[in-house]
Design a protein around this nucleic acid. Sequence first.
RNA 1: GUAGGUAUAGCUCAGUUGGUUAGAGCACCAGAUUGUGGUUCUGGGGGUCGUGGGUUCGAGCCCCAUUACUUACCCCA
Length: 472
Amino acid sequence: MKPSIPRGTRDFGPAEMQKRQFILNIIRKNFELFGYQAIETPAMENISTLTGKYGEEGDQLIFKILNSRIHENKNKDLLKKEFDLSLESSRNSEELTEKALRYDLTVPFARFVVMNQHQLSFPFKRYQIQPVWRADRPQKGRYREFYQCDADVIGSDSLVNELELISLMDKCFSELNVQITLKVNNRKILAGMAEVVGAADRMMDIAVAIDKIDKIGPNGVHKELSDKGFTLEQIQLLFSAFFIQTTDFKDFEPLANIKEKLNYLKEESKYKGSLVFQKGIEELEYIMYNSNVSHLKFELDISLARGLNYYTGTIFEVKANAGTFTPSILGGGRYDDLTGIFGLPNMSGVGISFGVDRIYDVMEELNLFPENISKTASCKLLFSHFDLETQNHSLALAAQLRTNNISCEVYPDITKKLGKQFDYANKKNIPFVCTVGSNEITSGEYSVKNMQSGEQEKMTLSLLLERLKKGQ
RNA sequence: GUAGGUAUAGCUCAGUUGGUUAGAGCACCAGAUUGUGGUUCUGGGGGUCGUGGGUUCGAGCCCCAUUACUUACCCCA
């Protein structure tokens, strides 16, 4: 049988793991630096926990788990009926499936908060670094299993949380050495537009269409909106707001300029009468004017929508500035009532999610990993030997090195061929090889070879320890 | 769901208008060198050309089907 893994999933070898850990360590360190605490939730959730939170498209991409022991279910007629029904529509049948793999970390977090509300003290700040699964068609930068690194604050509607999250990502990407642009928008602006246009319940339709303006252009958006049944008047009204963005807001601009645009939207646009719209603008203003960032570029983009249903306020999206491959590598936003569905209303939360796998891909393309990262040796020294006696002696020496916190290993097989053992050390980038033969055992002086310089020297164990401790 | 591309050694790929026994580099094993790797030289093992059918005197190459992988759209980290 030919071994294989499901498409869209990957194995990570030692070289890749070095790089992944590099990214994860920076993110984790900063999460903790900003006061977030780690939690974990199960890979699978009850299907009802997940559905209805991500929008129609998202719900389709949830990996469902077939009920186990389905053959033991006595009601075969019902099972067959449910199966036939599920062939025709995407509805979930509890008879067939009641669990699913998590689609993101935010919804399981909301569930966690509701279930543990009496143990937690609010505002609660948590971080979570775990894989999620999406039944997508894989392609470049898109996997069916990938890691998200989430930081969320729940139980506080202060915009200071947004400011903190922005400086958190600023710091992370600065340490990762990735040049990025942060796009910010506010769902209230979109909601206000939908309201003024007279289609408050169709905010997501409008948002998704408008979001595409960079890709398909104004005509494309016009067509998509009219296909969805919006009238010419409605479309023109919508365009009056975001057209400003497409012509003038395209690239990073000085703060003064952004200010001018925001003032226009607030005081002169056709939306100035909408309270929600005004609130959205005010929130955006606060964030734009109070953020203290040193690394990232800001971009106000009122066409930014994001597909997830649960966002209600600020929304974030980050892309790398350089390279040909620039998917979004971070997303996030504020959700005012995600816990409400589970019975805990008035819990506003805001969070961001780093896409490690895409950050990896971007850094790989741009060559941003530190130079020697995958050449890092697994350990400091290898003991080579000739027979059972010298191997045993090596094991004893290894134990002493480890007592002194020096990583080392003993060649596991017994062979007269030193070349093979040196080759092993060479391939694993082990910087020193200590050869233990019967001569060495009697004299107490071991041959230690520096694999980089090729120099070899005889020394006692205590001298060896001293040298290795000094990092020589 | 829609539309393309690819499939030849463990890996990356050549393979001419269809024509003897299908090649290279890397990797692997052995020797030159029985106590020394990374350099060099010599030799060696490795392939049902994704699978099934068709055209042909003859198919790795052409046609059809199928599977896997991959890219783009949709959507998203």
